[in-house]
């Protein structure tokens, strides 16, 4: 079953959007024939493209401002300080990794994700994956720790989801601490759930 998993992933990652977009265009045309919404649909093309421009302008303010703040955190060493707080947890999850350098790469990746430094997280993550692959005894097959590491990235926690908050604030929506609690509870529990699932799978599938 796992032989082709990665090809499915590549298919989904790279070309899925291709199909999703074509699906949107074609299905909306077919749907409009049946529902008689053709006039709405043809108006929507120009109206929604305008909405796209509006959305990007809405997002731009937050994206630029927070990139600025995060750059300060990164260069002043605050990101590194944060990563020290995480290291006990990393030691538990990656108890089978002995190499300190690999662990610190993992740590910096997770810390960057939590702080919302997406652009910094990916290079750390790729280096960590390559380091984990070196320690991996099997060729072409992911090790237990690699699975756990990628899971921490796919179920990643972000302390302040800045883009979301920008969008909600500018649309005059509720944006209080309750929203953050909802997000933290959901993403943190999912992360724990995923890690436990990983440990269980390691037990039963060799």
């Amino acid at each position: 079953m796992h032989k082709h998993t990665v090809f499915i992933i590549f298919f989904i990652g790279d070309t899925m959007l291709n199909y999703i977009w074509v699906f949107m265009m074609v299905v909306s045309f077919i749907c409009a024939i049946f529902t008689g919404n053709m006039e709405n649909l043809s108006q929507a093309v120009s109206k929604e493209a305008m909405n796209g421009v509006n959305l990007i302008i809405t997002l731009a303010s937050g994206m630029c401002f927070w990139s600025g703040i995060l750059k300060i955190m990164e260069k002043s060493g605050l990101t590194y300080k944060f990563s020290l707080l995480l290291s006990p947890l990393i030691n538990i999850i990656f108890h089978d990794i002995k190499n300190k350098k690999t662990k610190s790469l993992i740590n910096m990746n997770i810390t960057s994700n939590i702080l919302g430094l997406g652009n910094a997280a990916t290079p750390f993550g790729i280096k960590a994956m390559q380091a984990l692959d070196k320690e991996n005894g099997f060729k072409n097959t992911s090790s237990n720790s690699m699975c756990r590491f990628v899971l921490l990235n796919t179920a990643s926690i972000q302390l302040i989801p800045t883009t979301l908050i920008t969008l909600r604030t500018l649309k005059n929506g509720i944006c209080d601490s309750r929203l953050l609690y909802c997000i933290w509870i959901s993403s943190f529990s999912a992360c724990i759930f995923g890690i436990i699932l990983c440990f269980i799978c390691e037990r039963f599938k060799k």
Binding site: H2, K3, T5, M129, D133, T141, S142, C147, C201
Partner: peptide, 13 residues
């Protein structure tokens, strides 16, 4: 990385 068999990763994620 050169990994093509991702084992339980996809299902867990």
């Amino acid at each position: 990385t050169g990994v093509t068999k991702t084992r339980h990763n996809l299902i867990c994620s």
